[in-house]
């Protein structure tokens, strides 16, 4: 928060303007690639909500992405549901799944939560290939894509881009407003120190489930949009597997805490860099994700805790205890250090 508020607002406005103009100047192939980056940015914004507010890490967000994508795709293809309704249904399904996992996350934390979410991520492809009659399994499912409205001057690729951009901006606006709200403050207090927060009247259960559900809803929305913009989903699509979770985490770590620029920059780098590397073979891309993630975390000084949303100066949260992350090894004998030069008394 080094820059002042007007500077930041201007920078964000410029960024939004650039995002709006981009598809007018690039060929369809590029615009489609940018659309995919925006999709990933939405998923990352969802993960950012969870990690930013609670400091918790989910490695299962690929499953929520996959649920969003498949519910949407299956409803359109097999049930003939209109696209908009299918997207909404897909998004909400992810949210419901997230709420279900939000309940155990009340008590399961840290490494244990990571185990649960990892197994969740590993389960999805298995479930998809089991029900391959509906899902297409590894063969995949062809989903009709978003088409431009009648009489529109936009091309198909541009239409898809703007739909996804609109969704991203709505999501970021929502997270921004949540962050500034009473609920946001309660969440930050909860992340800092649960016991203290409870004494201030914060209700941890509702908040935790709510954040988990909101986070997975957003990521499921990304999945739903992926289905209707890429037009093809399969159980081996990397976003549906653990690799997807890694992509989102890598993007989150690269992008950092900023609400709009963070997920965008992270998604752009996480999407484009491995694509460059993977020209030889797609496995190199996976290796690159893992290696980049490890390298970033080892080299970045703050690690995950630097991703926590900071308390704003103007609205100081209840002045509670030190951050729990800093209680590493408390020395027994530390004292404030007064440099009083008293001579040693010698006796005898």
């Amino acid at each position: 928060m080094s820059e002042s508020r007007p500077v930041r607002a201007a920078a964000n406005a410029a960024l939004v303007l650039a995002l709006v103009l981009v598809p007018l100047f690039f060929e369809p192939f590029r615009v489609t690639q940018f659309t995919q980056i925006l999709v990933v940015a939405i998923a990352v914004a969802g993960l950012n909500l969870l990690t930013g507010f609670t400091g918790q890490v989910s490695v299962g967000h690929s499953a929520f992405f996959g649920i969003g994508a498949y519910v949407t795709g299956v409803l359109i293809v097999h049930a003939g549901v209109p696209m908009t309704a299918a997207i909404i249904a897909g998004t909400l399904s992810g949210g419901i799944a997230g709420a279900l996992f939000g309940i155990p996350s009340l008590r399961i934390k840290g490494t244990h939560l990571a185990i649960v979410t990892l197994v969740l991520a590993a389960s999805l492809p298995a479930v998809l290939s089991t029900f391959s009659e509906i899902t297409g399994g590894t063969e995949g499912l062809r989903v009709p894509r978003i088409t431009p409205p009648r009489g529109s001057f936009l091309a198909a690729d541009q239409t898809r881009y703007y739909v996804v951009l609109g969704a991203l901006l709505l999501v970021v606006l929502g997270v921004f407003m949540l962050d500034r709200s009473r609920t946001g403050r309660a969440l930050r207090a909860l992340g800092d120190n649960e016991i203290a927060a409870v004494t201030y009247g914060v209700r941890p259960m509702r908040l935790r489930i709510g954040v988990f559900a909101a986070s997975s809803t957003i990521t499921a929305l990304a999945g739903a949009l992926f289905a209707v913009t890429s037009g093809f989903i399969s159980s081996t699509t990397s976003y549906m597997t653990i690799v997807g979770s890694i992509v989102f985490l890598t993007a989150l770590v690269i992008g950092g805490r900023a609400l709009l620029a963070g997920p965008l920059a992270g998604a752009a780098i996480a999407e484009l860099l491995p694509a460059q590397i993977s020209r030889y073979s797609p496995e190199w891309a996976n290796f690159a994700y893992g290696a980049i993630l490890i390298a970033l975390l080892l080299l970045a000084p703050g690690g995950i805790s630097s991703l926590r949303f900071r308390r704003r100066r103007s609205h100081p949260a209840p002045h509670v205890l030190p951050a729990p992350l800093q209680q590493e090894e408390t020395p027994h004998d530390t004292d404030d250090t007064r440099d009083q030069a008293q001579p040693t008394t010698r006796i005898g």
């Binding site: 400091g55 918790q56 690799v243 890694i246 290796f287 994700y289 893992g290 993630l293 490890i294 995950i304």
Partner: peptide
């Protein structure tokens, strides 16, 4: 990585993907 907040968990995931690749 060991002395940091949740970093090791994420690093283990990174290792997973790297080893698989």
């Amino acid at each position: 990585a060991m002395r940091r907040d949740l970093v090791p968990v994420v690093i283990m995931i990174g290792l997973y993907v790297c080893a698989n690749a």
